[in-house]
């Protein structure tokens, strides 16, 4: 199984980014950076994917979408927060409709900085993600894989929006 572990497929979701990171994720798959030579394929289907790339912060409306894509992915899976907004909310942190980084909703394994993120950083982050994927695969085989928790960024999850904490919004919202 080690050979398949080195060819991860990625699925990309744009939380509420400005598009800068999204086009850089796509640029990483085109001839100059060409991650496909390492077997990294950008797929549209979450069930085919090993790595979820989230760009942009999350807001109330896309919380259920991010959650659903994460839940549709098969174990083992890795989440990479691409760019400053996905890591912490970035420049939009103070906006009224921004809840925070991707980690207020789903557990994030790799934080990749940059505004906008550079394709080289994305490649580095995916390589880091492959290592974590391999560890998780072993843990899954030995039945020691534990469900990761999202409480690492507790301060962001305690922020109150419209009388509810971000953590409550994240756990209560469902896709209609």
């Amino acid at each position: 199984m080690s050979s398949t572990g080195k060819s991860p497929w990625i699925v990309h979701y744009d939380g509420s980014s400005c598009n800068g990171c999204d086009i850089e994720v796509l640029a990483a798959t085109t001839p100059l950076y060409d991650v496909e030579r390492f077997g990294v394929v950008n797929t549209g289907n979450p069930k085919h994917a090993d790595i979820l790339l989230i760009t942009g912060s999350v807001n109330e409306q896309n919380v259920p979408v991010v959650k659903q894509i994460y839940e549709q992915m098969m174990e083992p899976k890795v989440v990479i927060a691409c760019g400053a907004c996905a890591c912490s909310g970035g420049i939009f942190r103070d906006c009224y409709n921004t809840l925070g980084g991707a980690d207020v909703v789903v557990p994030v394994d790799v934080y990749a900085p940059g505004c906008a993120i550079r394709p080289e950083t994305i490649i580095d982050a995916v390589v880091k993600g492959i290592e974590i994927l391999e560890q998780k695969r072993k843990a899954l085989k030995n039945k020691t894989l534990v469900e990761p928790d999202v409480s690492r960024m507790q301060s962001a999850r305690d922020k109150v929006v419209d009388g509810q904490t971000v953590a409550e919004i994240a756990s209560n919202s469902t896709l209609e």
């Binding site: 744009d14 939380g15 509420s16 980014s17 942009g56 912060s57 807001n59 409306q61 896309n62 979408v65 939009f92 103070d94 906006c95 009224y96 409709n97 921004t98």
Partner: peptide, 14 residues
């Protein structure tokens, strides 16, 4: 719509 609404016009006050 609204999946990537951030409320950017408002932070001109901040």
């Amino acid at each position: 719509l609204g999946f990537i609404h951030r409320g950017l016009e408002k932070i001109v006050e901040k």
